[in-house]
Amino acid sequence: MTASLPRPLTHLGDMPVDEFLRDYWQQKPLLIRNAFPGFESPVSGEELAGMALEEAVESRLIQERGEDGPWQLRSGPFTEEDFLSLPRSHWTLLVQAVDQWMSEVAELKEYFRFLPEWRLDDVMISYAADKGSVGPHFDYYDVFLLQAEGKRLWHQGARVDDQSPRIEGTPLKILRDFEPENSWVLEPGDMLYLPPQYSHWGIAEGSCTTISVGFRAPSAKTILEDLAAELAHALPEHLRYSDPGLEPARVPAEIDAASVARLQEQLGEWLLQPRNIAQWFGAMMTEAKYPDTVALDAGDASDWREQLPSGATLVLNPASRCAFCRDPETLFVDGESFPAPPGFAERFCNSHSIDARDLEDFPELGAGEGLIDLLVAQGTLIYPPEDF
């Protein structure tokens, strides 16, 4: 990887990104040979194991043949003794959100900005001993599986759902009946794209490291529950079901089609306005995956006033997320919405930083209890970490 900030991919292998989005995205799998020519892993298995010792890092260890039965799952933090006691094969270590802790991994996300940034979830990295895997399974989100070190055999099966039979006796959702439709061995730089619900099974051939770039996809249940709760909280009491111009009831006990249609129209008037949807959706899709990590970096809201004009830069916390909307003019950060000029909001979401030029162009940002004060106080804006 180069030291300069990478740019979004224009091609996936020999395929233009436009063609990929038209024919493959959310539709069918795609194997991309040599997607990253000469790729070198930004993290080693030893470094991943070291991260898994830390309490702030989410990690899991999966053994195909554990002491308590097949497909044993253990959650971190782990100890050095945990790793020393592992067998020589058939186990996998998974570490979530490595992009929050390593700048070299965070830079990988830049390549995928041909997709909406607010759709990107995190970068998970797994290290597997020989024959290590997490079993045949499926996910509800899109994922790019980039081979970083060693080789992994990938089996890709049919599209399945939560009605598909699972293996009992394990907390892991391992598919009981799995039939491969395609099989490939991936080497460093190769990448496999899988849309939601395509069953797959990756098995290490010797030890290997795989990078998973996943994308957020909230369920319909989550969307409806969250949206209803958020919008209902803001509705005034005087908005109620009403039926002026009512015709005489022919069957008093019947809830007729006209009543249902009337309620549907009123719900649209109360809730489903584009501005309401945009405000809620922006906040939801920028919620930090690990908000406690963001809160740890909460700073003194007055300190930046001396530092920024003298050449310092504030950057977006690696654990934070941001997006913006032009109508209404809003910046979304870590699940919160702030009124902001679109010119600034777009610049900030692209650069993930604020410097003296922003204060010159948008002086309102520096007002007391203004946007910069608020973002520094909640840990969203920080001085660049040493590793970043």
Rank of each mutant, 00 (worst) to 15 (best):
W154R: 04
Q163L: 14
S164D: 14
I167D: 00
I167Y: 03
E168P: 03
G169F: 04
P171M: 02
P171T: 00
P171I: 02
I174V: 15
L175N: 06
R176P: 05
R176A: 15
E181F: 04
S183N: 04
W184G: 04
W184L: 13
V185R: 04
L186R: 03
E187P: 05
P188R: 06
P188S: 12
D190Y: 05
M191D: 12
M191H: 05
L194C: 09
L194N: 02
Y198C: 07
W201Y: 15
W201Q: 07
W201P: 01
G202V: 13
I203R: 05
A204D: 04
E205M: 13
E205D: 10
G206K: 05
S207I: 01
C208H: 03
I211S: 03
I211N: 06
S212A: 13
V213W: 02
V213Q: 02
G214S: 12
G214H: 06
F215V: 09
R216G: 03
R216E: 12
A217F: 01
P218E: 05
S219E: 08
A220E: 11
K221Q: 13
T222C: 08
T222D: 15
I223F: 12
L224M: 14
L227F: 15
L227G: 08
L227D: 00
L231N: 07
L231H: 07
L231Y: 03
L235R: 10
P236T: 00
E237A: 14
R240F: 03
R240L: 10
R240N: 13
Y241W: 09
S242D: 06
D243I: 00
D243A: 12
L246I: 13
P248G: 07
P248M: 14
P248T: 09
A249S: 11
A249I: 09
R250A: 15
P252Q: 06
P252T: 07
A253F: 14
I255K: 12
I255V: 15
D256N: 13
D256P: 02
A257F: 04
V260Q: 08
R262T: 14
R262S: 11
R262P: 00
R262I: 08
Q264A: 13
Q266E: 10
L267Y: 05
W270T: 08
L271G: 02
Q273N: 03
Q273K: 15
Q273G: 07
Q273Y: 02
R275M: 02
N276H: 12
A278R: 12
A278K: 10
Q279W: 07
Q279E: 15
Q279H: 11
Q279D: 14
W280D: 01
F281W: 10
A283S: 15
M284C: 08
M285V: 14
T286Y: 05
